[in-house]
Design a protein around this nucleic acid. Structure first.
Lengths: 239, 239
DNA sequence: CGTTATATTGAAGTGCGTCAAAAAGTGTGG
DNA sequence: CCACACTTTTTGACGCACTTCAATATAACG
């Protein structure tokens, strides 16, 4: 159930058998949700944290006038709201973009885990810091990169992250999201997002249709986006 | 020395005397740096974390073409790179915007702290999650808010954060940053930032000159920016 | 006081938004 | 399997926010 999470934690540091079983013991239930279901509302009080087992989920923030920014995308193996363990309520919504499977870890169990397993705690702490690193890269994109580069960069990020959890098949991956929602990740309108995607397709960089992203040449896309995966911290930590 | 940090931690949860002294014991040295000194370079290996005692510091990310995005501003009492404790290297630079005083906490001491003080560990974890919450709000600004609103929103954020550490004097605060750098926070060019600031001044919302921001009517500014401080988590956590 | 950094203004260009409509895709029930 | 309604994608025309380039004014500083 939490194998993808362990896969990703072990990408960064060793997890002992004891730690693994303690972590497994944190999860007590699972659930399936439909696409576009709001999993958590901004401000809602939390008593458990949610792991994404399968599907696609986003964090999004709204403006009073209805404009919306998606601040993060989550792939299988990601915690959706581990930051909620310390924050107790979120500053944003958490919404499924596609049908998704979730697993739940009550906060009192995570507290007990932090009392007994400081090393594992630091590793979970690390995983929320990885989210923050991605937020920063998105800030850079939103503030400085032009539409097509911004989109290309996000495709590169997803390619990397999905590869870690074995969700890349050849040069393509399943990506069940609407153009309008993709645009909300990029800070672009649906109309302009469509033009940006046409652009990338014409350049032979990305073909995105039928809930599937095809990347003919990932190196070419990386060049175009000037993508440096350092911010994803995919190599093993040195300690 | 770390009184402002304690002030901010206690804003969120109780810190026992024992925890306080353990935290104080983490810091072993201090230093003063000039304005525009790069404190940490992206990618650099870290063995200690830095607390800002006084001054103004930013996190910034660069693009190969020289464009730059400031992803966070730090006020006295902020950790500059506590996330570096788990990440071991940063994905961004850390730079002083004004002359600043820093205090250093070696990572091995923080590790020992996490072994002995799980509650305090969770509180430090929380403080990195607060950084992430601000990153998300900046993503929203960069992606959806227009220049003048974006600028006004940032002034509101700074007003709140500086108030917590007693750096607001009446309706004004010291803000020793150039317009160009302020623009790099907002994803705007120096020229356009200047026009945005002129705009805010003409509307009587913010006057920013001589390293000083004057906010005649904070409520009016909050209205204009549609500022909701929830993402700063300034109230006490319920536990 | 001169020198340099920073702020300010103008004019022209571009990326992206907005509005509106058409085309293509998707799902449903007959 | 088709007919239908609905959603999503696509395209066009136009407007605006922001950028770029260039010049001038003002402030900061030794």
């Amino acid at each position: 159930m939490i194998d993808l999470l362990l896969l990703k934690l072990r990408q960064r540091d060793a997890v002992s058998a004891e730690e693994e079983s303690a972590l497994r013991g944190c999860f007590d239930s699972a659930e399936t949700v439909d696409a576009h279901k709001v999993i958590l509302r901004s401000g809602q009080l939390l008593h458990r944290s949610i792991l994404l087992l399968d599907g696609l989920v986003c964090r999004s923030k709204d403006l009073p006038d209805g404009r919306r920014q998606i601040t993060a995308l989550h792939v299988p193996g990601d915690f959706l709201d581990l930051h909620g363990f310390t924050l107790k309520r979120l500053d944003h919504d958490v919404m499924a973009l596609a049908p998704s499977q979730l697993a739940f870890a009550p906060h009192d169990r995570i507290i007990r885990l932090t009392e007994k397993f400081p090393h594992l705690t630091r590793l979970l702490w690390l995983s929320t810091n990885l989210d923050a690193a991605m937020h920063r890269e998105w800030e850079l994109s939103l503030g400085q990169r032009l539409g097509p580069v911004r989109a290309a960069h996000l495709f590169c990020e997803l390619y990397e992250r999905l590869q870690v959890v074995n969700r890349v098949e050849g040069n393509a991956f399943h990506f069940p999201i609407h153009q309008a929602e993709f645009g909300e990740c990029l800070g672009l309108t649906a109309v302009h997002t469509n033009r940006v995607l046409r652009d990338l397709k014409q350049q032979g960089l990305v073909e995105f249709a039928r809930k599937r992203a095809i990347i003919p040449d990932i190196d070419q896309l990386r060049d175009f986006a000037q993508f440096d995966p350092a911010y994803l911290y995919l190599e093993k930590m040195l300690r």
